[in-house]
Design a protein around this nucleic acid. Structure first.
Lengths: 351, 351
DNA sequence: GTGAAAGCGCTAACAG
DNA sequence: CTGTTAGCGCTTTCAC
């Protein structure tokens, strides 16, 4: 954000303050404050007078002033790496709902997956003195998280971090990748390839999970990974890369749902059928995967729960109920749909 | 939001203030303030001393305190009706980018399409004294918008409103619906049905656009509308309703993309092929419509541009460059994909 | 150039 | 129960 612009803005005609209310109700400032805060120990008569004055003046408490003196904002800052990925729609929804229940506002932000912008977004939240920070699959380096964690409660969602001082809510990506590979192997596949998530949060762990599962199942010789990204194009490019190998893999485990969808497109363009020729598994089980036309087998990640839990972790810390790190790791599950099936009888090779 | 909880929170160990910096740099408070604000007229020596002190103390300006005295926050409040609809992902992205360019922070909020919750979300933003408010397809009543507009600059996105005092950025829903109907009629369809968006923002206008276009094209006798919603289920239910009619419509214009996708599912479940038996058109041209597996003909709405423009309108008002209402209406376009084609030769009726 | 003083709107003591 | 008094951290006059 530009540090400062030189425009002069006219302060909107000043809104009524607590003092205006007090005068109108013919009571003291503090009495008004007490009414607003729901403090008991105000005579019903005065309370009513104040309430009326508030109504008439259309008075609205100034959260900024309150925050300054209370030295807290009741705002949870949330930096979301990718607002366009429907998975984060679930996460946001979970955050929003739980925060509201616990009496906090939520302030969202994004850096569009660009580390430098994400850093600026976080900084912006810190300057606002949010009470706590949720980082959803951030792409910033660990030291940034670490540093934030020394100033305020921080919880990292859906990404591993070495940062101490912060909590985290993740799913077991190793296990999730294992589920995907086992499912495919169980169907009879051996040439199972992986399109990874590039530099995305959790990408390397899912990749590692794939590698381990392949070795564990005795498929070490068939390991084949290509670079992708957590985007449709990433999956598309990754699949195109895979299509150059011979014989072709009979199954692809993509790093997330959108990239799996990109892979599906590449396969179709190459004249391959899914799942008859190539099976595909995604990750996140977003609403996209559930769409009938796509019907993608996917590893379920419970985004809403992640968001909800993240808020709970944060609020525990904010309200001083816990000061030791908490790291929730959830077990993913597999949702089987029609993008996976047994491998073809004869190995395919693109002409 | 619960008005107040009674937990006592320990103020995090207090962060350094401008005064700490001043002491460390052996200068006055105001000098530090000048440096931070980039005010010129500070000797290079002092400036350096201050910068060093800031660095060493890890000082971060307190935006809350600044806002209180400046009587503005440099925050744009954004209430998004539906964070899960990918269309709003585009809108949010446009808002975020443009706001950042213009030196504003963005604070997102949602009320999950529930009018009462949306109202609370807006109120929350107002208490925070955001400098301006963007309402993306809000479902609150006009008076709420009107009232907000009297206190601060407000711009309404993707919805008509009778509220004065506020700006708006919409697309021409009448024309958009017209494009959809004309496209279908051009393909030879006459029995073109409409699944509306229920109470969603813009739903009634699109419905009206459908009605007008049908009459204009001499298809008044074939008008057929059912109630839907801006959700997949809404479209699904609407289509199920349509499937009860005989003869079946040969084309469906759904109120938005997600509902069109729901309609596609209903058709498929009924054993009907798209577009051979029934053509389908959506609205918004979201990333979903572009997915190869879905390939939905859709009316393009340019969400990113809407967001960008909304921010520009707002900032113009905030910075006092304009005080007359501005209402941008964009012309939609039609993106033809493979969900539409000529009608079947023989009218279909479900057995 | 620089520093002292006032005050943004509110809460939180504390004395009446 | 009520009113007075201090600030919260910062910007902004206005003297020096």
């Amino acid at each position: 954000m530009p540090r400062r612009s030189n425009v002069k803005t006219q302060p909107s005609q000043s809104e009524p303050t607590i003092l205006d209310v007090a005068r109108k109700a013919r009571v003291s400032k503090s009495l008004v404050s007490m009414v607003i805060r729901g403090d008991d120990g105000v005579s019903p008569k005065n309370r009513e007078a104040v309430l009326n004055a508030i109504e008439e003046l259309n008075y609205r408490p100034n959260a900024i002033a309150r925050s300054l003196v209370e030295r807290r904002t009741r705002i949870l800052g949330v930096m979301i790496s990718d607002l366009r990925n429907p998975f984060f729609g679930d996460v946001v929804s979970g955050i929003q709902i739980r925060a509201e229940e616990l009496g906090y506002r939520v302030l969202f932000n994004t850096g569009d997956c660009v580390p430098k912008l994400e850093e600026a977004a976080i900084e912006s939240l810190l300057e606002l003195r949010v009470d706590g920070l949720i980082l959803a699959a951030p792409r910033v380096d660990d030291p940034i998280i670490e540093r934030a964690g020394r100033v305020l409660p921080v919880v990292v969602l859906n990404r591993d971090t070495s940062a101490t001082h912060s909590d985290s809510v993740t799913n077991d990506n190793i296990a999730g990748a294992g589920l995907a590979v086992e499912h495919l192997a169980g169907l009879g596949h051996t040439r199972i390839a992986h399109i990874d998530g590039g530099g995305g949060a959790g990408a390397s762990v899912r990749r590692e999970g794939y590698l381990r599962a392949m070795r564990r199942l005795g498929l070490g010789d068939h390991i084949l990974t290509v670079e992708g990204a957590f985007t449709e194009n990433g999956g598309y490019r990754g699949a195109c890369e895979l299509l150059k190998s011979a014989p072709l893999p009979t199954a692809i485990f993509a790093a997330n749902d959108i990239s799996a969808i990109g892979a599906l497109r590449a396969l179709e363009e190459a004249g391959l059928r899914t799942p008859a020729d190539v099976s595909v598994v995604g990750y996140d089980n977003t609403s996209l995967a559930a769409l009938h036309q796509i019907s993608l087998t996917s590893v379920q990640q419970f985004g809403t729960d992640n968001g909800r839990l993240g808020v709970e972790c944060l609020v525990e810390r904010i309200e001083g109920k816990r000061s030791t790190p908490r790291h929730e790791v959830h077990a993913p599950t597999l949702v089987v749909r029609s993008s996976t099936g047994p491998p073809p009888n004869e190995p395919k090779t693109l002409s």
